[in-house]
């Protein structure tokens, strides 16, 4: 029996024949730290990836079949929802937060702006069951999938006969979300000393400023240190207390996940509630918009008592130039990550 399945595993299916490349995200970029969700935990596999991709783009996962994961996470926007302050779900319902880009999720130790979700595999449960997003329940989604004309057979090819289970659904979706590696920007080529890795002198000055002023939080080549911090957007947090909502700790009120800045030129508007429209506004915020509060990050308090990061006009122009180098066109246009035809 084992031999039979081994053979089945070696038989390339139609998907493999049409796209002979490796499953996206199968390679750990040389300039990245070790992933939290290593590939050995859910080995990239062509048929599983393609099934995960179908599910990601399938509105069947929402209550009224109008909203898919891909509705709020669009490839052209690095899987963010550019142009929308807050995400919009079934029946036009407005969510509470800005849909973040989905990229390099293998390296995320906790997910969501407040770290509510502990693991990439269980993440889909949150949008599925959120009344403002997909308005579904897991048992009902499974029932719909099990009645579907093609999903049962596709799952059975991977997991053997029997109804589709929650485990199978979650593992399969993670095959797609974990594949969203963005590591091919001009900046990446520059740090890896690869062809095409040339930065202009303004971009290089921007990089120097970035390393001095921003990289303490937007750290490593993932551009986040994966911590929660208060970057001074508000003095009080009546609407959204961020990390404190999850941990119950008053000392974490107003703290949000330091977001990656990869593809940041494409993911406006910015911050957890999409309040800032442009990168220039973001830099204005850091320079003179930072608001004091008990939990404001100490890095944003200067020794002279001023708040924020002092950025002169030249530094701001250079930073804006540098941030553009983080755009990864091959990620945004990789046909393997697009909705299946």
């Amino acid at each position: 029996m084992l031999a039979g399945l081994l053979m089945a595993g070696c038989h390339p299916d139609a998907d493999v024949l049409t796209s002979p490349e490796a499953v996206p995200g199968s390679v750990v970029p040389a300039n990245f730290p070790p992933p939290a969700y290593g590939p050995e935990q859910n080995p990239p596999d062509r048929a599983s990836f393609e099934l995960g991709r179908s599910l990601f783009y399938d509105p069947l996962l929402s209550r009224d079949s109008t909203v898919s994961c891909g509705t709020c996470h669009r490839q052209a926007d690095a899987f963010a929802d550019a142009g929308r302050r807050l995400s919009v779900g079934v029946q036009g319902r407005l969510g509470a937060r800005n849909a973040p880009p989905l990229q390099n999720l293998r390296w995320r130790r906790t997910l969501m702006w407040d770290g509510a979700v502990s693991h990439i595999e269980v993440l889909p449960l949150a949008p599925l069951s959120n009344a403002q997003e997909m308005g579904e329940t897991l048992p009902h989604v499974l029932a719909k999938l099990n009645r579907h004309p093609s999903y049962p057979a596709r799952f059975a090819r991977l997991y053997g006969p029997g109804p589709i289970t929650s485990y199978q659904l979650l593992r399969t979706l993670a095959q797609f979300t974990a594949a969203l590696t963005s590591a091919d920007s001009r900046y990446d080529h520059y740090v890896r000393h690869e062809a095409g890795g040339t930065l202009s002198s303004a971009e290089l000055r921007g990089l120097t400023t970035f390393r001095a002023q921003c990289a303490s939080c937007h750290a490593t080549d993932l551009f986040t240190d994966e911590t929660y911090r208060n970057n001074g957007l508000d003095g009080r947090f009546p609407q959204d207390s961020g990390r404190a909502h999850i941990t119950g700790r008053a000392a974490e009120r107003g703290l949000f996940k330091v977001p990656s800045l990869r593809n940041v030129a494409l993911t406006a508007p910015y911050m957890h509630d999409g309040r800032l429209q442009t990168l220039a506004e973001v830099l204005d915020h850091y320079d003179h918009g930072v608001v004091a509060s008990a939990t404001l990050d100490p890095l944003l308090r200067r020794p002279d008592g001023h708040l924020g990061l002092a950025l002169d006009a030249r530094q701001r122009t250079d930073l804006l130039a540098f941030l553009q180098t983080l755009t990864d066109d091959s990620f945004l246009h990789n046909p393997q990550l697009a909705p299946p035809r």
């Binding site: 935990q41 969501m112 509510a116 979700v117 502990s118 693991h119 990439i120 595999e121 269980v122 993440l123 449960l125 949150a126 599925l128 069951s129 959120n130 897991l138 048992p139 499974l142 289970t165 929650s166 485990y167 979650l170 593992r171 993670a174 999850i246």
Partner: peptide, 24 residues
């Protein structure tokens, strides 16, 4: 195990014993 992702059997996420957001 509470932070180990998708599970089967007694711990399957559709067993009516799982918080979807603030997962656990």
């Amino acid at each position: 195990r509470n932070t180990a992702g998708a599970q089967t059997g007694a711990l399957a996420q559709d067993n009516d014993m799982y918080w979807d957001w603030n997962s656990g």
